[in-house]
């Protein structure tokens, strides 16, 4: 390479006359950095962003709840009588399961959101800010949890209208929602990893549903596995989605055992412990 100068003072810009036209920039105050905020404060800003998105893109709510609403109506009224004797009994069985399915499916959307943020370069903007480097992910999680709460609330509301009654009452329902958020948190990691690995949001969605459809259908969400062939039943019984569904049913009807709760928590805990470091590593790599 060539260094052509000793003297850089003869620069073209300093010689040229000052610009006029937009006094705005010249008048702009110089602002020094404020005291850095804590991670919690950062995460809350990301949560606020998620709420703003609901306001500007209300359609996304439609995406989140339309499938579970359709499932609830179809399964309850079309298959319910045949599967459980009466539509009312079936709804009682099915509703906790569809809540699990809603949360699990919704984590795909956060992976898509992450992929979009990367594609748009928004993550780069966040990363050049002097904030806790995991704050954008924490923020994503906050947004996710909000989405899970909203979608779960809507599905539960529809269930109540249709005649679903949680026997465990308010306390059991709150415990069930805490379980749902834990499940959503655990599943979130899977799609954050996908979002980091896959370049286009559409691919994240396709891949996500390719994984999730078999896992949610081959579970006890819709039907009691007792009627399934043995090989399938042995899968369904250990399928984490079944374990989650069982515990949610237990929590909402007030019959949950500690072991049911413990089994349901295995997948979220394992996913968090294994995938959080993977996310960190992938993030540093990018």
């Amino acid at each position: 390479m060539t260094d052509l100068t000793a003297d850089a003072s003869a620069s073209p810009r300093t010689a040229s006359a000052p610009e006029t036209g937009t006094p705005g920039i010249a008048a702009l105050r110089r602002v020094p950095p404020p005291t850095p905020p804590g991670p919690l404060s950062n995460a809350l800003v990301f949560g606020w962003r998620a709420i703003l998105k609901f306001r500007h893109v209300p359609e996304q709510l439609f995406d989140l709840v339309m499938t579970p609403i359709m499932f609830t109506l179809l399964f309850t009224f079309v298959f319910g009588g045949a599967l459980a004797g009466s539509t009312g009994d079936y709804l009682q069985y099915f509703l906790p399961g569809i809540l699990v399915q809603t949360v699990v499916f919704n984590s795909v959307y956060s992976g898509m959101g992450l992929s979009t943020d990367f594609q748009k370069g928004l993550f780069d903007r966040f990363r050049t800010l002097p904030i806790w480097s995991l704050a954008p992910f924490a923020g994503l999680m906050v947004g996710d949890l909000l989405r899970h709460l909203i979608a779960g609330g809507i599905i539960l509301g529809i269930g109540l209208i249709l005649g679903y009654r949680p026997d465990a009452g308010l306390f059991g329902t709150l415990a069930a929602f805490a379980m749902l958020l834990t499940i959503g948190f655990g599943m979130g990691w899977v799609f954050i990893v996908l979002g980091l690995l896959v370049r286009t949001p559409m691919t994240v969605m396709t891949l996500g549903f390719t994984i999730l459809f078999p896992v949610t259908f081959a579970s006890n969400i819709m039907v009691d596995p007792a009627t399934m062939p043995g090989w399938l039943r042995s899968f369904v019984e250990v399928n984490p989605v079944s374990l989650m569904t069982t515990s949610l049913r237990g929590l909402m009807s007030g019959t949950a055992s500690l072991s049911q709760i413990g089994l349901a928590l295995i997948a979220p805990v394992v996913l968090t412990l294994t995938l959080a470091p993977v996310v960190l590593w992938l993030y540093r790599l990018r």
Partner: peptide, 12 residues
């Protein structure tokens, strides 16, 4: 840094 492609949240 202002990246090569606008780094903004399009929905906001």
């Amino acid at each position: 840094m202002t990246g090569q492609f606008a780094s903004l949240d399009e929905d906001l």
